[in-house]
């Protein structure tokens, strides 16, 4: 059971990162919205994962993305931010002692919970990402608009993937 979970996550890491680097990196909607769907990997990590391990995984994932985007540190900080929001959100909404389900997928947790979870995580990730990338406050409103439109784009793809792959077994 446990080793299966690890294997699934490793495969998911490779698939989502390759998807991001090879395909989505070249995709942009009028240069306003750019999707960063690889965050789905961090969203779907199992509930029982220790905090330190989660941060390390987020850090390494961000660093890998940075290497391919030539933006050292930007994705790393954004992923760590996402990990923090994820931990806080799960601590507030999910019963700490008995996790019924191993993973926070849409099929396991229901549409309403997952949407709220994904919105918070993706938006905080994108805000950090775009502001660190721009690295100046003079383009504040434009950067905010860009992160907002990109969040909507990313969320759309994330929810779509969830509906395709995970909904079946639960309902």
């Amino acid at each position: 059971m446990n080793s299966k979970l690890i294997l699934v996550n490793i495969v998911r890491w490779f698939v989502l990162l390759l998807f991001q680097i090879l395909l989505l990196r070249n995709l942009s909607f009028y240069n306003m919205a750019t999707p960063f769907v690889y965050v789905l990997f961090l969203l779907l990590l199992p509930f029982g994962i220790p905090n330190l391990l989660l941060y390390l995984i987020a850090f390494i994932t961000g660093l890998t993305l940075d290497a391919f985007y030539d933006t050292l540190g930007v994705h790393t900080a954004a992923c760590v931010m996402l990990a923090f929001v994820r931990i806080s959100f799960i601590a507030v909404t999910v019963n700490r002692d008995g996790f019924d389900e191993p993973e926070p997928t849409l099929g396991n947790m229901g549409f309403k919970w997952f949407l709220f979870y994904a919105v918070l995580c993706v938006f905080s990730h994108h805000i950090v990402l775009f502001f660190l990338e721009t690295f100046r406050l003079t383009e504040f409103s434009y950067t905010l608009l860009r992160s907002l439109t990109s969040s909507i784009f990313t969320l759309f793809v994330v929810i779509l993937i969830e509906f395709i792959f995970y909904n079946r077994k639960a309902r």
């Binding site: 905090n51 330190l52 941060y55 987020a58 850090f59 961000g62 940075d66 933006t71 050292l72 540190g73 930007v74 790393t76 900080a77 954004a78 992923c79 760590v80 931010m81 990990a83 923090f84 660190l132 690295f135």
Partner: peptide, 15 residues
């Protein structure tokens, strides 16, 4: 942990 890792990320960006 968040403080540690996040500041490491920011440090990399600034550098």
């Amino acid at each position: 942990f968040f403080i540690i890792f996040f500041s490491l990320g920011i440090f990399l960006t600034i550098k």
